[in-house]
């Protein structure tokens, strides 16, 4: 993976600002996202891009491929859900508590899991998802298998609930998106960001240069879990309910991983590209292929994953690299590890 050079980064910065401005304009111009289906797809793209970016902090930048992020997602979702349903208040304190709790839980989980490498780490995170998923199912205090159903409420920012129109959710998703992506963008340039990439490229080497790899991984994990929980809270608010299989499941964990990998792991734009391709595909195939019977959309999704892994495991960013690599082959002076793969 190539470091963006100074000039590239300033170009990237302008693209980033233009993108945020354009997305913000959509929310401000009345009727721009009047169609509920488009609004729904846009909200999901922003939400899943944020989820994938939160995973990308640990999986992409720090190189620890975790399949356990649905646990943090679920904790965040339940934080908002509990505040709304059990305590009958606004969701915000629940959101904050959920996110902090998720970070704390992630730190505890890290302790056994970060001793493991490769497939052992992956399987341990699967096991963690199963443990949490099943405990959530039998924990009556948080609603057990039935989950938490939101009461019917008026549309308001105070409760972050809208039923008639999706503009509020869109604005909320945009705030979440800007927050997560903005922090990651800053993080790329901080000491921690460089340490994380150093650990990814070679843990022993990083340690020999004085990087405390356990601490770096722990911080990446906690940050990643915090943002995943925020996304979870949004998800619960958006769906008006939360139950265990909906949030804490292997399929949900896989969404975090697949969107990022489809877009390009360890890159800033990858999660957004992945979500922008996968979510419309998923929503449109679900709508238009419904006549072919259940499961066809998922079959296409499966085939897409297979194809992507066979053709270009570095995702859409990898494809872009291929093209720009071909175009600017003479201008570029080596250093690109594209050739190796």
């Amino acid at each position: 993976m190539v470091e963006p050079a100074g000039k590239n980064r300033s170009v990237e910065g302008r693209v980033w600002i233009a993108l945020v401005a354009a997305l913000a304009l959509l929310a401000v111009i009345p009727g721009a996202i009047g169609n509920r289906f488009y609004a729904h797809v846009l909200v999901l793209i922003l939400l899943y891009a944020s989820m994938a970016q939160s995973w990308n902090i640990l999986g992409g930048y720090c190189g620890q491929v975790s399949f356990g992020h649905s646990v943090f997602f679920g904790i965040g979702a339940y934080g908002a859900g509990m505040a709304m349903v059990k305590y009958g208040t606004v969701p915000w304190p629940g959101v904050i508590i959920g996110a902090i709790l998720a970070a704390a839980v992630s730190a505890v989980i890290s302790w056994p899991c970060f001793k493991l490498r490769g497939h052992y780490f992956a399987i341990a995170t699967f096991a963690i998802v199963e443990i949490f998923g099943r405990l959530f199912l039998v924990w009556d205090w948080i609603g057990g298998a039935l989950g938490l159903d939101y009461p019917i409420m008026d549309d308001s920012w105070k409760y972050f609930l809208w039923s008639s129109d999706k503009t509020g959710y869109y604005a909320g998703a945009l705030v979440l998106f800007v927050l997560v992506f903005g922090v990651v963008r800053r993080m790329e340039r901080t000491r921690l960001g460089y340490y994380m990439r150093a650990v990814r490229e070679g843990q022993e080497t990083a340690e020999s240069l004085g990087v405390n790899s356990s601490l770096v991984k722990l911080m990446a994990m906690a940050l990643s879990a915090f943002f995943a929980a925020l996304c979870g809270a949004f998800f619960a608010q958006y769906n008006y309910r939360v139950d265990p299989p909906m949030v804490v499941s292997l399929d949900m964990s896989m969404k975090f991983v697949l969107i990022t990998i489809l877009g390009g792991m360890g890159t800033f734009w990858g999660p957004l590209l992945g979500a922008a391709v996968l979510i419309p595909l998923q929503e449109y195939t679900r709508t238009y292929l419904a006549s072919l019977g259940p499961g066809v959309d998922q079959m296409i999704y499966g085939l897409l994953i297979i194809f992507m892994m066979m053709r270009q495991p570095r995702g859409i960013m990898g494809f872009i690299g291929e093209f720009s690599g071909k175009a600017g082959k003479t201008a570029k002076k080596g250093g690109d590890d594209n050739a190796a793969s």
């Binding site: 991983v257 697949l258 990998i261 259940p294 499961g295 998922q298 066979m310």
Partner: peptide, 23 residues
């Protein structure tokens, strides 16, 4: 190609097979 590619490709295969049988 990458450490996780076979795992994720077989995950794709599992989604495909599961939903094929569902269908």
């Amino acid at each position: 190609k990458s450490a996780m590619a076979p795992l994720l490709a077989t995950f794709g295969l599992s989604i495909f097979l599961k939903n094929f049988c569902l269908n």
